[in-house]
Structure formats: structure tokens, C-alpha cells
Amino acid sequence: MSDAERRVERGGPYVGSPIIMATVRVVMPFVFTFGLFVMFHGADSSGGGFQGGVIVGTVVLMLGIAFGIEATRDWIGPRLPVALVGIGVLAFLFTGIGSVLLGAGFLEYAVYGDLGIPHPSKYGIEFVELAIGVIVAGIVTGLFFAIAAGTTGGESA
């Protein structure tokens, strides 16, 4: 029996407070929306991929603290954080490699205008910021579960 399960059985620090559970249940969608808002608004005001990604990752952390870390980890599954990180990095890399395939330099957004996308620089940067947000959210949740598990944490960043 792992440390975390023992803690949950003892009625440890993360489960059982009705106030936290009710608050998180109400607040969570708004925090998620705020995270997305911050992600989209990086170019025009404060925000961007990193900040928005951390806020979105915080949603899962809040769920873990309110409803029990083991239960949340079982719900998220062992593969989702890694898959999110992978998809995010691939999206970023293919945005860069795509512009090379279209004939211009690496990560040269302007060439996407030839495909018919209006304002290619602006939307290119937005897309990359979203990809970064996905990566950061995946990493924050994955790290939280890895460190909370105890013995399995610490192998790779």
C-alpha cells in the first residue's frame, strides 16, 4: 500500500472538507475559463502561454486537493499528461517545420498567408502560445502527480 493510500485511509490532509469540495466544484469552471482567457490574450495584454497553462494546470491541482489525489490521478489516467506534452511540442515543431516545407525559413509565420490564412503572424503566434499552454498544463499536472506519488517521482523533468 503506497504512502498516499495510507494517508487517504487515515482521513489525511486532502479529503473530507465539505467547504473545499463545494467551493472547488463551483469555482473550477471559472478558473479554467480564466486560464484560457489568459492564454489567448498574451499578445495584446498580460498573459500568454506559460501563465495560462499554469492556471489551467491549477484546476487539476485544485481537484486533487479537494477530492483526493489518488482519485484524481485515476480519473486523469497515467497517460494524459504525457500525451498532452507530446501533442503540444509536436504542434510547435510542425508549425516551424511546416513553414520550411512551404519554402521559407524555420518558424517564419508570414509564409502561412500564402495558404489563405489572414494575419498569419498574429494567428501563428496565438497557435504557438496555445500549444505552449497545453504543454505547461500537461507538465504541471504530471509533475504534481509524480511528486505526490513519492517513490516514482524524480526521474525526469
Binding site: 509533475l143 513519492g150 517513490t151 517521482g153 524524480g154 523533468a157
Partner: peptide, 20 residues
Amino acid sequence: LTAIVVGVSLTAVALGLIVR
């Protein structure tokens, strides 16, 4: 911003190592 993200990653790796 970039340096803060680097710092966060370093802290995360350090904490993982401390757990181990």
C-alpha cells in the same frame, strides 16, 4: 518570463530529486 519558466522547471526537478 523565459527565465522564470526555467527556474520553475529547475525547482520541479530539484523537488523530485529531494523526494527520491
